[in-house]
Amino acid sequence: MIYLDYQATTPLAPEARDAMLPWLGGPGTLGFANPHSPHRAGRAAAAAVEVAREQVALGGDRDLVVDEPDAAAALPLVRDPHEAEPAGRGHASGCAETS
């Protein structure tokens, strides 16, 4: 196959694959924890995310980079994040609202 559609998507670079593998589990790998967790494994994951953020920013302003799975998901962040209007509504009797 001759692939000439790199504008649609590009193959995962071997370097990118190698960077991902240590965080996908299995013997001798670095871990998989939630970067928001306070324990050692979580702190390691958070550190990796911050290193990645620095690498992505590369000479740009690192504060401007927010991790998002793709550009379409990132765009709403630069618009109004509170677009959705809460509903007006009635309420069943005997159901005092909790604070």
């Binding site: 996908l24 589990g25 299995g26 871990g31 998989f32 924890a33 939630n34 928001h36 967790s37 324990h39 050692r40 494994a41 979580g42």
Partner: peptide, 17 residues
């Protein structure tokens, strides 16, 4: 390491990997 925080995230299963 002993991981008992699966509600935060669980290890990737080998077959899923």
């Amino acid at each position: 390491p002993l991981y008992l925080d699966h509600a935060a995230t669980a290890p990737l299963l080998p077959q899923a990997r």
